[in-house]
Design a protein around this nucleic acid. Structure first.
Lengths: 322, 322
DNA sequence: TTGAAAGCGCTAACAA
DNA sequence: TTGTTAGCGCTTTCAA
């Protein structure tokens, strides 16, 4: 691949002059400019980003760290981030932590090696001291996406609020008994439970998701057999919700008459299911946009101190399942 | 961030000696090695990958170019690629062409700027002269994934064969009239059509997918009303299949009795739909593995000439919808 | 307006 | 076994 020095030789000017031309400086004689530009085009010159970055300026590289890119939600997020980054002349190095803190830590090292200008991260344990400490050492700006991390710019949906919203909705629809499918420490569950308890209902049961369908089936069946009151299930994501819908069908429980089901993430399939799935949607594109904007702003102005804490509202997408 | 030169000063040795130690050379006195290592650890040294890459050795960077990361299939693929790359000490720069040839072309330029060691690509128009030409100019190895590109290493599923397989399966199940949902130039359609025609059936109708549900509904409805024979729909992906299932339900056509539906990609939701969706699955992990292996091999041995053409077989996942 | 020189952080060749 | 020197391709002074 041709370099500035080579172009300089071919066009009989100095290498810094080539640099000036290629970087759009107007202080170069028109005649030279045209000559250099023509030569660059002819040889299909591409600036060596490594040399440029080494020089101390920007690398135009952003590290993007997600937990699981094969999860549709994060895939969408990554897509929006990539688009927003590209619009601003940035490329992204993608990392998939797979919910493994060790991977995450390694990535933070790699990110430093490549001298990325900034990092967009979906941390695994955003509250842990280790994470905080590692981020400190990074000495590049980090923006947390879809999670809230103390002391770091955070762009996220308030899961607690979303859970509360779901609770209120299910109560309105007259459900009286509740099950949450997912991890107990999930913010959604906290908001869901608190609201229900405040309204005088029993704390909702939680149920982890069994990968094994049979186990999952048994767990659901026994929960539904415990009482005849009109029950509702809040699933931590749409695939869980889909599985619940499937189990209910097999158990002969009709939705939404005898039981309600609501998912999370509002994935594309929701509107085509039977019954069409109610779900909670997050403003992915808006969050990605803002996260990138914020990160670039940090990169431009490293001196700024104020931490951004921007919870976005989730939206209830109501369809037939509740 | 601390550099080798600084460590050299702190430990009273020369910078190249630091380089030797940090690169694991055994030709350095144990005492010095320990001193340098300790210093590096203490200051949390991270090698500057840009400087290393500039030097002419490897950048340990792979460009990954996909058409749409928000498509679950490519998200899975990207994940597997990332994992395989990481295992070999490589990081990936991710690009999303969004099926836009202009983006694709820009990416190929960016890839050159960062002097990636190799590229894994899902090209938009792998047969076009422009693409071929652009790839030539790249002067880094390129491996084509999930597409077959003449003259380039290609790891893919033979869509024609998959389409033929689907046709044979639907014939076995006694369907007599066929509709393909997707683009006419899709390899799946070619294989599907050819097999059907060979067996003496009419060439299957194709139908593009309307984003608009109403239009899609009307198109399907009119097709089903044209004849009373037992009909089957082969959808280009599972989401299309899901939509077809939904339409059929609304039209009161029962599956698989009156109509068959088969999807493509075998996404997670398939086994929980009603009816459970038959689909075609691709060996994503195996393909990603092989693609990365092949690419790294090319990087190690740029002189090798033989082009790899490796079509993987698709698998028919039969469930209740056919 | 242009060029000469230095230097970013590293590797590699050579010398000691 | 260690150090010296040069150079990767660029940007950034500083002079001319």
């Amino acid at each position: 691949m041709i370099t500035m020095t080579e172009i300089a030789k071919l066009t009989h000017v100095s290498q810094p002059t080539v640099s000036r031309v290629l970087n759009g400086s107007q202080t170069v004689a028109l005649e030279i400019r045209e000559r250099v530009l023509a030569c660059a085009r002819e040889h299909d010159y591409q600036c060596n980003a490594l040399a440029k970055g080494l020089q101390g300026s920007r690398t135009q590289l952003l590290g993007v760290l997600v937990t699981d890119i094969s999860n549709g939600f994060f895939a969408d997020l990554a897509k929006e981030i990539e688009t927003a980054a590209r619009k601003n002349g940035y490329s992204i190095i993608l990392f998939n932590s797979d919910y493994n803190p060790q991977n995450e830590q390694e990535y933070l090292d790699v990110v430093r090696r490549y001298r990325v200008d900034g990092v967009l991260a979906v941390p695994i344990r955003e509250t842990s001291a280790e994470w905080q400490e590692y981020v400190k050492k990074l000495d590049v700006p980090v923006v947390t996406v879809t999670r809230r991390a103390e002391g770091l710019d955070s762009i996220y949906v308030d899961h607690g609020q979303a859970g509360a919203m779901v609770a209120r909705h299910l109560l309105e629809r007259g459900f009286q008994r509740f099950l949450f499918i997912g991890k107990e420490y999930d913010g959604k569950y906290a908001g869901f439970r608190n609201t229900l308890v405040q309204m005088g209902f029993e704390s909702p049961t939680t149920n982890v998701v069994y990968q094994d369908d049979t186990q999952f089936h048994q767990a659901l069946e026994s929960w539904f057999q415990q009482s005849a009151s009109r029950s509702a299930v809040f699933a931590g994501n749409d695939i869980y919700a889909l599985r619940v819908l499937d189990m209910l069908r097999r158990l002969g429980i009709s939705v939404p008459e005898d039981a309600g089901v609501i998912g999370f993430d509002d994935t594309a399939m929701g509107r085509y299911l039977n019954p069409r799935l109610s779900s909670v949607s997050q403003p992915i594109a808006e969050m990605a946009q803002e996260a990138v904007t914020r990160l670039l702003d940090r990169i431009e102005h490293p001196e700024r101190q104020e931490v951004l804490d921007h919870p976005f509202p989730a939206a209830l997408i109501l369809r037939e399942s509740t």
